[in-house]
Design a protein around this nucleic acid. Structure first.
Lengths: 317, 317
DNA sequence: TTCAAGACTGCAAACAGTTGCACTAAACCT
DNA sequence: AGGTTTAGTGCAACTGTTTGCAGTCTTGAA
C-alpha cells in the first residue's frame, strides 16, 4: 500500500536507520550509499511520513494561522504571505477562522497544539489570561495586539492615522471627524489617540460603529450634521459605506467631503472614487510572524504604515 | 512536559487501552470508569495526539485545500465555507496557494499526501495525466473542472452566462460583447458556448484577455469601437476594470453601456455602480467539496448559479 | 448449580519513523 | 607496528495511540 522506510531499506540492502539518515542527516551517510538509497526511494515513490517523524522529534513542520474571518478582505493578503513564507521553509500551514468568536480561538489553539510547531494569532480577542494559558501549550506569535512575554508583530496604525490627519490638514481641512470602530478595539484606541495629537485640526469622534460597510453607511448623517469637511474612517469598509451614505444624502466625495480609510484593501483600490487610505503592511506582517515562529525568537516588532493618496481626498470647498 | 495517555492511565488506575477507548470508542467502557478517566484527563489537560493516532488508524482528520491565489477575492468565501464544514466534523484544514503555477499543485498534493485524508483542488491547471497520478496517492475532489473518475463539483457558469445575456436581451440590447478570459480556460469556453445560444442577440467575442482589472481596462477601447450596447465580462474584476476604462473614454455605465460581471465578489458589491453579476455558489462549493471528501463519495455535482441584478445594467439609449 | 453469554478491561504488537550507543574498518599518528 | 581517531552502519529502544485477542467477572438462563 503505502511505501515506508522499511521497504526502501530492504530494496537497497541497508538498515532502516541508514535510510532515515539519508533523509534527515545526509552528511552522516556515505555518498555512494546515499545516492543508492535516494534512487531506490525515488523509484518506489517513497516520501517520509511527517506525522511519524513528529512523534519522535517533536517537530511537526506544521504551523497554524488563526484569523477572525477569512472572507474579510483584510486577511487574505496576510494569509497568502504567511503561506508563502512557510512554504519557503518547507512548513505546511493550517488556516482557521474563528467567525469572530473569542471562544473559538482558544478551542482552535488547543486543537492545533499537538499538530503544529506554533501558531500565529491575528488580532486575538481572548483575554490575557486565556492567552497566557495557551502559551504553555504551544508557542505563538500575535499580530496586532500587545501581549507581554509573547512574540508580537504590530502594525503602526497610530502613525498611519497621524499621517492621514496631517494629509487632511495639509489640504486645508481644520475640522475632521473620526468615524471610529467598535468599542473595545485596540486599533480604534490607537487611531484615536494618534489622530488627536495633530496640531491645527479639531477632531470630532463619531462612534462607536460597526467595522463594516453598514456601519459607515449608518454614520453618514451624523457626519454631514457635524460640520466637518474631512473624515478619517476606522477602516476601508467603513469608508466605502460612508461614501455611499453621503452620496445618498447628496454629498459627493471628494468635492463636498474628503474621506480617508485605513487598511488598503482591494475593494478600496477598485472603488470609485479610489480611496485614499493608510496601507497596512499585512503581507509583511504575515511573513514576519511565521519567520519569528520558525526561528523561535520572541521579539516585538512594529511595522511601518504609509499613506496612499488617491481620489477620495481634496481641498475643502 | 506534554501529558500523554499513559499519564492519564496511571493517574486514574486503568490501562492505557481503557483510556484510549474512552476517547475513541466510549461505548466499550463502563460508565463509571469512563467518567473517572474523563475527569482525570480534564484535570491533567490531556488531549489525544492526532498524529500518533493517525499512525495506527491511517486517518489523520486533516484535509488539504489548494487554490490558485488566496488573495484573489473569488476564493476566500470558498475557503471559509470549506473550513467551517471541516470544523463541523472535527477536521482541520491545510490551505495552500499555488501562485498560479501548475507545478506547485502537484508538489503540494504530494507533500500533503501523508498528512491528510483528502484534498480539494480548486480549478486545477495540471494535466489530466498528472491528476490521475496524484489520485493514486490521495483521494481528492476537484472544483470547477471536469475529470473522469474523480469527485467533482462544478458551478454551472454556462447557465449563469445565459441568464446574463437573456437579461440584457430583455432590456432591449441586441448586440452584446463577450469580454472573454484567458485562452485555455474551461470557464471561458463554457461561458462562450452558453452565451452564443441566446436567441435574438448578436454576440461579439473580444479577447482573450487577462482575467484581471487591467485586462478589462485594456479592453475598453475595443468595446467602444465594436458598437455594442451591452457587455458580459469574464469575471467581476474584468468588469470593474472595463467600467473604469469606459469612464476614461467618456462612456458611463449603465447609461451608455450595460455591463454584467461574473462571480459576485465583494468589490463588485461595493463598487459604484454596483455590479450586476452572475453569483457563483463558491461557499456551497467549498462546503460540498469537503463533505464529499469526508464521506468518501465520488459524485459529480453541478451547482446552480443565479443572476444578481444591480446598477450596472439598464435599457440601451 | 452449572454453563454460556456478555460486559469490561488488560496485554502486547503494531504504526513509521528517529537516535544514542556499539561495533567494524579504514585512515592517521607517532 | 601499535594505538587512536574517524567515518559509516547496524541495533534496539522509544515516540503516543489503536486494536485484536485473551482473560476476568457478572449476569441470566436452563
Amino acid at each position: 500500500m503505502t511505501v515506508t522506510i522499511r521497504d526502501v531499506a530492504r530494496a537497497s540492502g541497508v538498515h532502516v536507520s541508514t535510510v532515515s539518515r539519508t533523509f534527515s542527516a545526509p552528511h552522516m551517510v556515505n555518498a555512494a550509499t546515499r545516492t543508492r538509497v535516494l534512487t531506490v526511494a525515488e523509484e518506489l515513490g517513497y516520501r517520509p511520513n511527517r506525522a511519524a517523524r513528529a512523534l519522535t522529534t517533536g517537530r511537526t513542520h506544521n504551523l497554524g494561522l488563526i484569523v477572525a474571518d477569512i472572507a474579510n478582505p483584510f486577511f487574505p493578503p496576510l494569509i497568502k504571505a504567511a503561506h508563502s513564507a512557510a512554504r519557503q521553509r518547507d512548513y505546511h500551514l493550517f488556516v482557521a477562522d474563528t467567525d469572530e468568536e473569542p471562544a473559538a480561538e482558544e478551542e482552535l489553539v488547543q486543537a492545533f497544539s499537538k499538530q503544529v510547531d506554533g501558531v500565529v494569532l491575528c488580532s486575538p480577542r481572548s483575554s490575557n489570561k486565556a492567552l497566557e494559558r495557551l502559551a504553555e501549550r504551544v508557542p505563538f506569535v500575535v499580530i496586532n495586539r500587545r501581549l507581554r512575554g509573547a512574540a508580537t508583530v504590530l502594525m503602526d496604525v497610530g502613525h498611519g492615522a497621524r499621517l492621514a490627519v496631517e494629509h487632511l490638514a495639509g489640504l486645508g481641512h481644520t475640522r475632521v471627524a473620526l468615524v471610529s470602530g467598535p468599542a473595545g478595539s485596540w486599533t480604534s484606541a490607537e487611531i484615536r489617540t494618534a489622530a488627536e495629537q495633530v496640531p491645527g485640526v479639531e477632531l470630532l469622534v463619531i462612534g462607536p460603529n460597526a467595522p463594516t460597510e453598514r456601519g459607515g453607511f449608518a454614520a453618514a448623517a451624523k457626519v454631514r450634521d457635524s460640520g466637518v469637511t474631512g473624515v478619517l474612517a476606522y477602516n476601508d469598509l467603513v469608508a466605502i459605506g460612508l461614501i455611499e451614505g453621503l452620496g445618498d444624502l447628496g454629498l459627493s466625495v471628494p468635492e463636498d467631503m474628503s474621506v480617508v480609510g485605513i487598511d488598503d484593501i482591494v475593494p478600496g483600490r477598485l472603488n470609485r472614487p479610489k480611496l485614499t487610505t493608510v496601507a497596512m503592511p499585512t503581507a509583511a506582517a504575515g511573513r514576519l510572524a511565521v519567520d519569528l515562529l520558525i526561528q523561535e525568537v520572541t521579539a516585538t516588532t512594529s511595522l511601518e504604515t504609509r499613506l496612499v493618496v488617491r481620489d477620495s481626498t481634496a481641498p475643502p470647498r
